[in-house]
Design a protein around this nucleic acid. Structure first.
Length: 576
RNA sequence: CGGGGUGUAGCUCAGCCUGGUAGAGCACUACGUUCGGGACGUAGGAGUCGCAGGUUCAAAUCCUGUCACCCCGACCA
């Protein structure tokens, strides 16, 4: 492609709207343009990368035997009512009506449509297993779209759905997808981890996420330093402390704590560590009665764990000030378990292992210190309520946990019969009796991968695309093109040769100074740069530099094509 | 949805407090010089100051409302 006919509008200044590096670079390099909150256009340069990501995904899905199809973005409400998600899904589901006031949704996912297709078209166990996939736009009306295409409202997803006659077939199909995903992300040059995950709104039992490691990731993942245990923190179990609770040594005393409402303020006023403070949180209950959750002061509540407890409302919601007051006769900030009545109470394992602790007195401006379970109050029901933290023992039993941030680019689920049951998707088995199919579903955030790849591959000057998803392979920079006939002839010829060899070249034939071309080459992140100048031509050489290299190297002009071809890494090794 | 903030040229922003001719840098157009790391000069095009209402002789500026967007807390590819 000749840059003189390819409008790129690179920008030196960072647009104010962009907070994370990938979003900044995508705007500066002219990959995307914002249309509305969380809704983006993909400009020609960006689309080339997007298409390459799709290509890798297609190749691996096809290799795994999945069948590509295409489902509509707009779906009738009837199917969602049938599955029950019309009422369950919440405000993230964009609903709309046509001119006849019939209800529709803009699909955030496609289980309903595919299940409807499967129940009509698949009638026998002989047609199973089967896996359908599509690459298509989704819409989720996120409360707070963020970070460019990383958390957009409209985004492109590869979603796949498999159907099986029994659990062992489902497990096989799931393992096959797990392997395909691993290959895809390896081919795209991403550093990622596969982690155990919560199934969330999609439902089902077993699920794993593919997390690209990046400091800007919105997810927190925990992994063991001694084995392959890895889990989203949402799900990672916090083991009960190994050591028994110490015996009481202090008497329970009521201490004035004026204007103290947080653990932080409490530790400063009383000079006790947060590990000796007890945090009391009131959350909305499933039946209208709030529930009290007790945590050690330095620990964080895990919403996914908490909302699975009996009596706790789902989704988890903190009680508001009025609810807290009516349930405890006290305002938030001075709450504690001593004397708390009429509420269901759960205590985290770590909270139950505390002795001589400090907690709220259920009276504004006062706390209790030297509190002990058993002696001062009956120990409440124990539960795992907290997020694991770095240094916790691994649930696998080996090693301790480390915590890193990740970007969720893929998620695979064993759904079981969640949708086939609600939508009555059955086939005849060998005995001729009607049985529910089992389902798996497998998602990949295609647009998100582009952002994640940039988060992992960039430097001060711009993007550094891995070869397999680079919009172009080679950036060809002729120096002084408008003045030097020799340079023009040599550059035109090399451009022709490279294209004939199937190598994608961005030919910077603009009448611009070298510095401008170099800067754009680096911002756009084209991995291989070739420079043609008078000086080199005198010596019969051209100049090559990889985007990651700090120095250039000269190579003979005669064997230019062979040299450049040897530098491309279009199919990096994939470990089985 | 709650809290905070911002809307002025394509982009980054100044001007607003203290009302009186709408600005700078980048980008863009033309010409000239320059040409291996984001050049320089000259000339030029470009903005109903988010929108609506109000106060005033006069509003980008003050007041009210409204919309959009961004940032911090409960969701997910």
């Amino acid at each position: 492609m000749r840059l003189s006919h390819y409008p790129i509008n690179t920008v030196k200044e960072t647009p104010a709207e962009a907070e994370v590096i990938s979003h900044q670079l995508m705007l500066r390099a002219g990959i995307i343009r914002r249309v509305a909150a969380g809704i983006y256009s993909w400009l020609p340069l960006g689309l080339r990368t997007l298409r390459k990501v799709e290509r890798v995904i297609r190749e691996e899905m096809d290799r795994a035997g999945a069948l590509e199809m295409l489902m509509p973005a707009i779906q009738p409400a009837e199917l969602w009512q049938e599955s029950g998600r019309w009422s369950e899904y919440g405000p993230e589901l964009l609903r709309l009506q046509d001119r006849h006031q019939r209800d529709f949704v803009v699909g955030p996912t496609h289980e309903e449509i595919i299940t409807d297709i499967a129940r009509r078209d698949i009638k026998s166990y002989r047609q199973l297993p089967v896996n359908f996939y599509q690459i298509q736009s989704k819409f989720r009306d996120e409360v707070r779209p963020r970070f460019g295409v990383m958390r957009g409202r409209e985004f492109i997803m590869k979603d796949a759905y498999s159907f099986h006659i029994d659990q062992s077939s489902l497990a096989e199909g799931y393992a096959l997808m797990r392997q395909a995903y691993t290959r895809m992300f390896q081919r795209m040059g991403l550093e990622f981890r596969t982690v155990q995950a919560d199934t969330g709104a999609i439902g089902g039992t077993i699920s794993e996420e593919f997390q690209v490691l990046a400091a800007s990731g919105e997810d927190t993942i925990a992994f063991s330093d001694a084995d392959d245990f890895a889990s989203n923190v949402e799900l990672a179990p916090a083991l009960p402390p190994a050591t028994a609770r110490p015996a009481p040594t202090a008497a329970m005393t009521r201490v004035p704590t004026p204007a103290v409402h947080t653990i932080d303020e409490l530790t400063r006023l009383l000079q006790v560590p947060a590990t000796r403070c007890l945090k009391t949180l009131i959350v909305a209950g499933s039946d209208g009665t709030p529930v009290a959750l007790l945590l050690r002061g330095d620990h964080e509540l895990n919403a996914v764990k908490a909302q699975k407890l009996a009596g706790v409302g789902k989704p988890l919601r903190m009680a508001n000030a009025a609810e807290v007051r009516s349930a405890t006769d006290c305002a938030p900030g001075s709450l504690g378990p001593v004397g708390l009545k009429g509420l269901r109470v759960y205590a985290d394992h770590a909270a139950l292992a505390m002795a001589d602790f400090v907690c709220g007195a259920n009276e504004e401006g006062f706390h209790l210190s030297g509190v002990n379970w058993g002696r001062d109050l009956p120990p409440p029901e124990a539960a795992d309520l907290r997020n694991v933290v770095a240094g916790d023992p691994s649930p696998s039993g080996r090693g301790t946990l480390k915590i890193v941030r990740g970007i969720e680019v893929g998620h695979i689920f064993q759904l079981g019969c969640k949708y086939s049951a609600s939508m009555n998707a059955t086939v005849l088995d060998e005995a001729g009796s009607s049985v529910q199919m089992l389902m798996g579903c497998y998602g990949i955030g295609v647009t998100r991968i582009v952002a994640a790849a940039i988060e992992q591959n960039h430097d001060q000057r711009g993007i550094i695309w891995p070869d397999p998803i680079a919009p172009f392979h080679v950036y060809l920079v002729p120096l002084n093109l408008q003045k030097s006939e020799r340079v023009r002839v040599a550059a035109d010829e090399l451009y022709r040769q490279l294209r004939a060899a199937g190598i994608e070249v961005l030919y910077d034939d603009r009448d611009a100074r070298p510095g401008v071309k170099f800067a754009d080459a680096e911002l756009l992140g084209i991995p291989h740069r070739v420079v043609i100048g008078e000086r080199g031509l005198d010596a019969g050489t051209l100049e090559y530099r990889h985007r990651r290299a700090s120095d250039s190297e000269d190579f003979p002009q005669q064997s230019a094509l062979e040299f450049i071809r040897s530098r491309l890494q279009l199919t990096p090794a994939v470990s089985a």
